[in-house]
């Protein structure tokens, strides 16, 4: 590791707040776009399935 201990790792020599806020923002962004992609994908599949099932029973 490039750091001697965990405190150094989190502090990053006074740059910790910058580095970690960037990685926090990026993680949240990627998680949000992934979640919206998968939930939309699932939702369309379910909506269509229900519609097809309903059409069959009429």
């Amino acid at each position: 590791m490039a750091f001697d201990n965990l405190t150094d790792f989190f502090e990053m020599g006074r740059h910790g707040v910058y580095v970690w806020s960037v990685y926090g923002f990026s993680t949240v962004s990627l998680a949000l776009i992934t979640w919206s992609t998968l939930s939309k994908r699932h939702q369309i599949q379910e909506t269509l399935r229900k519609r097809f099932l309903r059409d069959k029973t009429i």
Partner: peptide, 23 residues
């Protein structure tokens, strides 16, 4: 973020590069 060496000029803030450049 954890293992690459520190930049001699910028210190640790350069570690932002690992998400900035790919994005």
């Amino acid at each position: 973020v954890a293992f690459a060496p520190e930049d001699y000029q910028q210190g640790n803030s350069f570690r932002i590069i690992y998400i900035h450049v790919p994005a």
